[in-house]
Design a binder for these strands. Structure first.
Lengths: 127, 127
DNA sequence: GTAGAAGTTGACACCGGTGTCAGGTTCAAG
DNA sequence: CTTGAACCTGACACCGGTGTCAACTTCTAC
C-alpha cells in the first residue's frame, strides 16, 4: 500500500482540497498520525476512504452520519468493521430511501435533458 | 385542468412552500397573472411545472439554467416548445454528464448502506 | 545554516434555495 | 362595514462543505 503520506500528496491523489481533508479530520472522518512537528501523516488507506467520504457527501449524508457509518463499513482496509446499532440502521434505512428517491428524480431529470437535446439535434438536421 | 389558482392552493397541491413559489416566479421560472389587487393567479399547468422545477433543482441545476431549459421542454401544457440554442445544448450536455456521474455515485453509496444494513441484520440473527 | 516548499491553525465569506418574521393590503363571507 | 383568512413585499438568517487569506512553523535539500 501507499504507506504514510502527508496532506499534499493525499490531496493530489484524491483530487480533494487540503482544506477539505483537514475538515474531514476535524469531523472525525479521517485519522492521522502527527510528526514530531505536528504535520499530519495519513495512512495509505486514507485514499480510498476519502473517495468514499466524497461519495457519501454527494449522496446528501451529513458528516455526522458519515462519521457513524464509516466504522461499520468493511472496505479495502481490513479494519475490524463494527456492527451498526439498531438506531443507526434505522437512520441509514431512511437515508437509503432518500437516495432511492433522489436517483429516481435524477433519472427523470436526465430524461428531460435528453428530450431537449434530442429535439435540438433533430432541428439541427432539419435546418 | 385546474384553472387558475392562488399561491396557497398551488403550495398545497405541490407541497412546495409559498416562499419558494414566489422565489420561482422572481427567477422567471413561473409566470403568474395578477388580480387587480396584486394577488398572483397561477394557471393550472403550474402544478406540473413546479414539480419539474423541484426535480431539476434536486438534480443540481441552478435556477438560471432551469430558466433557459423550461421553455424548451414539451410537457403537458402544450406550449409551443422552443428549440434549444447550440450554446444551451452544450450546457445541458455537460449537466447530463454530471447527472450521470451523480447517479453512479448514488448507486455506490446506496450499495454501501445496504452492506452495512445487511451486516447488522445478519448480526441481529446471530445474537 | 539557510532558503523555499510544504504544513499548521484560525477566521471570514460564499453559495443559493429556503425558513421566518414584520408590517401592510386584499379578498371574501357575514 | 367589518372581520379574519389569505396574500403582498422586503429583509435577515441559516445550512455546511468549501475557498481563501494571514501569520507562523516545520521540513528538506543544498
Amino acid at each position: 500500500m501507499g504507506c504514510a503520506m502527508r496532506i499534499g500528496e493525499l490531496a493530489r491523489r484524491t483530487g480533494v482540497s487540503e482544506r477539505s481533508l483537514r475538515y474531514y479530520e476535524k469531523q472525525g472522518l479521517l485519522t492521522a498520525e502527527r510528526t514530531a512537528g505536528g504535520h499530519r501523516e495519513f495512512p495509505g488507506s486514507a485514499v480510498d476512504r476519502v473517495i468514499r467520504i466524497q461519495e457519501l457527501f454527494a449522496a446528501g449524508l451529513c458528516s455526522a452520519k458519515i462519521g457513524q457509518l464509516l466504522p461499520c463499513m468493511r472496505d479495502t482496509d481490513g479494519g475490524p468493521s463494527e456492527i451498526a446499532t439498531p438506531r443507526l440502521v434505522a437512520d441509514l434505512t431512511t437515508e437509503r430511501g432518500r437516495i432511492d428517491r433522489m436517483i429516481a428524480d435524477l433519472v427523470r431529470s436526465r430524461d428531460v435533458l435528453d428530450d431537449v437535446i434530442a429535439a435540438a439535434s433533430v432541428d439541427e438536421g432539419n435546418r
